Amino acid sequence: MCTVTWVGSVGGFELFTNRDELRTRPPAHPPRLQHTPSGLRFLAPVDEQGGGTWIAANECGVALCLLNHYQAAPLPAGIQPRSRGLVVQDLIDASSLDEAFDALQAMDLSAVRGFRLIGLEPGGDPRLGAWDTRSLELLAGDAVRAPLISSGFDYPGVERARQRTFEELQSELGGVSPRMLEQFHASERPEPGPYAVSMTRDDAWTVSHTRVVVSADAVQMHYHSGRPSAGGPIVSEQLPLRP
C-alpha cells in the first residue's frame, strides 16, 4: 500500500511517497548512504524484513520508487518469491533512466510478485514499468500521471478517494507544487481511516513518508517515520551529484 507523487523543478524534480504497511511489519531503517556493486553512491531507506528498499536516488540524479501491485495475478505454485525491494536495489546501479529500464526489461522477474516502478531523472519524462507476474508494460511521458496509488483494500474506492483529494488540493492551492504535495501526503481527507492518504486501518497504517529533492547539484532525501499527519522528527541525508 503506497501513494506516490512528483513534480518537476528547475534543474531537477521532487518525488514524494507514503509507505503503508501491516502493523506487524518491522520498522524500516532511515535513509543512509550506500554503494552499488559498480561503486555508484545512492541514498535509500532499508526494509528490515525484505532487505531491499522501496525508494532510492543515486548520485546521477536517477530516482526509483516501487509500489506493490496487489491486483496482479499470484505467482505460480511452488515458486519462492524474491523481495520486490531487491528490484529497486538492483536497478539503482544506473547512470540514466534508459540504463535502469533496459536493465528492468532484461531482469528475470519470474519469482517477483506484481509491482509498478516509477523512475525520474532531471530533464527527462517520468517512466513507469508495470509487472503483473505475466508481462512487463512500459509507459512514459503523459501516460505516467500522479498520483500513483496501491492498496490491497478496496482499491477502486481508495484510488477514487485519493484522486479526489489530489484534485481538491490542486484547485485550492493553485496547481501542483511541493507545498501542495506535502499537504496531500499528510491529508486525512475525507476522514481519518483507510481512504485517506495518511491512512490507518486496524491491520495497517502509513508507516513513513519520504521526500526526494533532486537539484542541479545534489540529491536530498527527507524521511519521516510514522504517519505524516501526526508530525514528528525528520531524518535528512544529502549526496552531491556527479559533475
Rank of each mutant, 00 (worst) to 15 (best):
L75T: 07
R41S: 09
D125G: 03
L43I: 15
A216H: 05
A44S: 14
A72S: 14
R145C: 09
P156R: 14
P194N: 12
N68T: 10
S150T: 14
Q183M: 15
N18Y: 08
V158R: 07
R113Q: 05
L33W: 07
L109M: 05
G85R: 04
W54L: 07
Q105V: 03
R134F: 02
I92M: 01
H69N: 10
V7P: 04
L241M: 12
A143L: 02
R201N: 04
Q220R: 11
V207G: 11
M107Q: 06
G52N: 10
V158I: 15
P192H: 15
A196T: 14
F101W: 02
E137V: 07
A130K: 04
P126E: 02
W131M: 02
H209Q: 11
S229I: 10
G114P: 01
A106F: 00
Q89M: 02
Y223C: 05
R134V: 09
S95W: 00
S96E: 02
C2F: 05
P233M: 11
G232F: 13
G52E: 06
V144G: 01
G174C: 12
P26V: 14
R211P: 03
L173D: 11
E14S: 07
P192S: 13
L104N: 01
L40E: 12
I149S: 09
G175V: 07
R211I: 10
V158C: 14
L117S: 05
S96F: 02
L40D: 13
A28F: 04
G119F: 02
I92D: 00
W205H: 13
P228W: 07
R23I: 07
P194G: 13
A63D: 06
L43Q: 12
Y223F: 11
F16Y: 10
L138G: 08
P27M: 03
G51S: 12
I92C: 02
F42K: 04
R32W: 12
V219S: 06
G39S: 14
V212F: 01
T53L: 09
R189L: 09
S38F: 10
S38R: 15
Y70M: 05
V10K: 11
F42T: 04
M1C: 06
P81Q: 11
A218H: 08
F184Q: 06
